[in-house]
Design a binder for these strands. Structure first.
Lengths: 118, 118
DNA sequence: TCAATAACTCACCCCAAAGTGAGTCGTTTC
DNA sequence: GAAACGACTCACTTTGGGGTGAGTTATTGA
């Protein structure tokens, strides 16, 4: 996503180079699922329990919340651990460095959205 | 997306504050549609014609490409203009400052994705 | 004994986003 | 006169992401 293509004649080589530089798809798909970044942000704000998250987002479904948490953990954006000696069993999530770095970029995306571009 | 919530007792006020800070939804929806950021990137690389874009992404459908271009222009990420004296008629797109700023953030997203987080 | 809580899982359905294939319009070239 | 190009538009179909509602397991309090 850096080099510039001067030759506007679209030969096969240029096509490949350009397509290669467009491969942001994975990251975009990672951040796109509904609620995901919002849930991650909440975890970073120490709202890290299933039932608490449901209170913050009353309209999220149990299934999707569970899926998002699973993805977040599977992708290393947060870690999950049991709170010992709690009945009924409780769970906590905490963002990793990777997750925190992602949240910073999402933050700058948000700021971009707030700006006035005349 | 900045202030921290210390009080873990989830009262109504905290819920509102937290939910408010999660409002990145619009920006995420703006960048999420399939092909959109890739098309915008191509335009920034001076591949700005309908038929050229189709060569870069052979699997995109005409309809979706036209939609994406329409959205990109409507959101002020790029401007559209006719190339004069061309037969058959040709069209060009050029990214705006707003679009360029967005691409920079997308770029850093991509870099985040390329990093090793042990 | 019954309800409630925390953290899920499962089967099912729905709809919007994306893909498919054809058509349009004005012009140029074979 | 037929085909091709460039930049679309339209009607139709498909797909998969997300919502719905119920069930689970273990435990505690009324």
């Amino acid at each position: 996503m850096a080099t510039k293509i001067k030759d506007s004649s679209m030969n096969a080589h240029n096509l490949r180079v350009l397509a290669d530089h467009c491969q942001v798809s994975e990251v975009l798909e990672l951040i796109s699922p509904r609620w995901k970044m919002q849930v991650l942000f909440c975890i970073s704000q120490e709202v890290y329990q299933f039932s608490q998250l449901k209170k913050v987002f009353p309209t999220i479904s149990d299934q999707v919340l569970a899926r998002r948490l699973g993805e977040i953990v599977a992708e290393g954006l947060a870690v999950k651990f049991q709170v010992p000696d709690t009945m009924p069993c409780q769970v906590k999530y905490a963002v990793t460095k990777k997750g925190a770095a992602l949240l910073e970029i999402v933050q700058s995306l948000h700021q971009w959205g707030q700006m006035d571009w005349e």
